[in-house]
Simulated scan of single mutants.
Amino acid sequence: MSKFVFIAVIAFVVGAFMLSNNFDSLEHGEAKFVYDTSTVDTAVANQLHQFLIEEAIYDDKTGDVLLLKKSKAGVWVAKFPVYQGGEISPLVRKNIEKLSIDIKQNVLNNEPLEVHITNAGFQSVQFFKV
């Protein structure tokens, strides 16, 4: 029962987050990539979505895998909702860092990218720049 309540709360938080902002998503199987429509051009969103498919990032995943937006300062912000409490595994951080560098080089034209490791509600726990 408590697991159901937890999942319901997370779904509510993510839903409220998406409804209160200008966010849309692109889905592949059970997974999706979320982006801020006010700062991310549809062409960039589609290019990143295709990149995630080609790199098999969606494989075996459900729910949100990434949120992309651009700050008012013009810096890309990628949020990965992988934090589940405790320490962040060095392997998880290494994989996110590698993926972020690939996204920066292959999709974002090497523009500045700030990477956030977040919980399921996209609240940042740790961040770094690539």
Rank of each mutant, 00 (worst) to 15 (best):
G85C: 08
E27M: 06
K61P: 05
A8P: 02
T42L: 05
Q50I: 08
N95V: 10
K94I: 09
Q105W: 02
S2N: 07
D64K: 08
I57K: 06
N106S: 14
A120M: 13
E97V: 15
T62G: 07
H28E: 11
E111H: 08
A78D: 03
Y35I: 10
P90D: 11
N22R: 08
G63I: 06
V5K: 06
S124R: 04
E97L: 12
F4N: 14
I57E: 06
G29T: 04
F17G: 14
V40R: 03
S124N: 01
V82K: 02
I117P: 05
H49L: 09
F12V: 11
K98A: 09
V65W: 00
Y83A: 05
F122C: 04
K129W: 03
L91P: 03
L113W: 08
D59S: 08
L108I: 15
G86S: 13
V44D: 01
I88P: 00
S20G: 14
Y35E: 05
V40I: 13
K61M: 09
V92P: 00
A11G: 09
P81N: 09
A45V: 06
F17S: 11
E111V: 10
V92G: 00
V13R: 00
A45N: 06
K79P: 06
Q84S: 11
A11D: 07
D41E: 11
V75Y: 01
I57P: 01
W76E: 05
M1R: 01
R93K: 14
D59Q: 08
K98R: 04
V92Y: 03
S20E: 06
V13C: 04
K94C: 02
F33R: 10
F6H: 15
Q47N: 15
K72C: 00
S2R: 11
I10M: 09
V65M: 01
E54W: 03
L48M: 09
H49D: 12
P81T: 10
S124I: 05
Q47M: 10
E55L: 05
V77D: 02
R93P: 06
A31F: 02
Q50T: 15
I88F: 03
A56I: 08
L108F: 15
Q47F: 04
G85A: 12
E27G: 09
R93W: 07
I7W: 02
I53A: 01
S100Y: 02
L26F: 09
H116D: 07
E87C: 14
F80N: 08
A45I: 15
V13N: 01
V40D: 02
E55H: 13
V115E: 00
V14C: 02
L52M: 11
S38K: 09
S25V: 10
V92T: 13
V75H: 07
E55Q: 15
Q126H: 12
V14M: 04
A45M: 03
L108V: 15
G74A: 04
A56P: 00
L67G: 01
I96L: 10
W76Q: 07
E87D: 15
A45Y: 11
V125P: 01
V77R: 09
Q123S: 14
T42I: 13
A78W: 02
G85M: 07
G86V: 10
T42V: 13
I117E: 06
E27D: 13
E30G: 12
D24V: 12
G15C: 04
V40K: 03
S38C: 00
